[in-house]
Structure formats: structure tokens, C-alpha cells
Computed example of a mutant assay.
Amino acid sequence: MFLSLSTSVWILIAAAATVVNLVAMQWIIQIPKYKKKQYWMPVIGIGILGVRGLAQHSALPATLYLYAAVMVMMPLMLAPVRSTITRDHYRWVEDPTTKVGKGAMVWITVSAVVMLTAVGVGYAAGV
């Protein structure tokens, strides 16, 4: 029994997380060339986590929890540094030897570790 929610509720949560991801990533990614590629994130997430769920014989709610967490995690990591990412990209286009801002990379790395830990603790609590 994964976190005491039914499968249908997890399906709704996963669908809402997909919408949040698509809308937020369109706002975060300000580079026209990459805006259309953001629509592949849910497809890739469903593919990878679906295969993982089948391989490990995980319950559907647990797989949907991981999917929803990953879909929400990406915008949460990138939103605070969206202007830095855009600025660094355009600087890199002008001069390929330009290095990315260390502050943005530190933020993304630390927030990813914190969020993955939180997702792992939530998963362990639900199993």
C-alpha cells in the first residue's frame, strides 16, 4: 500500500505533475530551439520508469509516485537559475570557450541531491 493512496489518485497526481512539468519547463527554457524538445520529457519518464516498474515488479502506485516526483523535480531545480542558464547559453553560442556559471551548477547539483534524497525517503516510507 503505497502512501495510502489508491491507484486512481496516483494516476491523477501523475497527470497533474505532467501538466505542471510541461507548463513550467516552457517558462523556464527560454531558448526557442529547446522549447519543443521539452515535450519529450514525459515520454522519456514514462518509458524509463515504466520499464523499471515492470523489471522490478513494482506496484503501479509506487511507479507513478516516482514519475510524478521526477516530473516536478526538474522545474524545481531549474526555475531559480533559469536566467543564468539562458544567459550562459547565449554566451556559449557567441564564444564556445565560455564556461558556465559555477553558482548555477552548484544550485542544480545540490538541489538534485536534496530532492533525490527526499524522493528516496518518500519511496522507502511508502514501500
Rank of each mutant, 00 (worst) to 15 (best):
M41N: 15
V113E: 06
M41E: 13
V114L: 12
K33D: 07
G47T: 00
L116G: 14
D88V: 06
L60M: 10
I29S: 02
P32N: 14
L76V: 15
K102I: 14
V51I: 13
K99L: 14
A59Q: 10
L116A: 12
T84F: 10
S83K: 10
G47D: 04
P32W: 07
V43K: 04
W107M: 01
P32K: 15
L49I: 13
G45R: 04
Y65N: 02
I44S: 08
T98M: 11
G122N: 05
A55N: 03
V70G: 07
S58I: 11
A79K: 10
R82F: 04
R52Q: 11
M41C: 08
A68T: 01
Y39D: 05
G53V: 03
H57L: 12
V70W: 09
A68K: 00
R87M: 06
I48Q: 01
V110R: 07
A59I: 01
A62P: 00
I29R: 07
T84P: 03
H57N: 15
W92H: 08
V119Y: 11
M41R: 14
A68R: 00
V119E: 14
L49C: 03
I46W: 13
I46C: 11
A62T: 12
V119I: 15
I29F: 08
I85E: 04
K102E: 09
W40R: 11
G45H: 09
I29K: 02
Y90R: 01
E94C: 03
L64V: 00
M71W: 03
Y90H: 10
T63E: 01
K33V: 10
V119G: 07
P61V: 02
Y65D: 01
I29W: 12
M71G: 09
I108Y: 07
W40P: 01
M73R: 07
G120N: 10
H89W: 08
V121N: 08
Q38F: 04
G47R: 01
V72Y: 03
T63V: 14
R52L: 15
M115C: 11
M77A: 09
G47S: 02
A79D: 02
T97K: 10
I31D: 05
A124F: 13
L49H: 08
L116Y: 08
R52C: 11
V113R: 00
D95Y: 03
I46F: 12
Q56H: 13
A79W: 12
W92P: 00
L78W: 08
W107L: 03
W107E: 07
I46Y: 12
Q30W: 04
W107F: 09
A118H: 07
H57R: 15
V81Q: 04
I48L: 15
L116R: 10
L116T: 13
Q38P: 03
G47A: 08
I31L: 05
I48T: 12
L78T: 06
P80M: 05
Q30A: 08
A124H: 11
K37G: 11
H89P: 03
I46H: 05
V70K: 01
K35E: 01
Y90V: 06
I85Q: 09
V72W: 06
Y67I: 10
L116S: 15
V119H: 04
V119L: 14
G101E: 11
V121C: 06
M115E: 14
M41K: 12
M105Q: 13
V106E: 07
L66I: 00
K35P: 02
T117D: 09
G50F: 02
A68M: 00
L78K: 08
G53E: 06
T109C: 12
D95I: 05
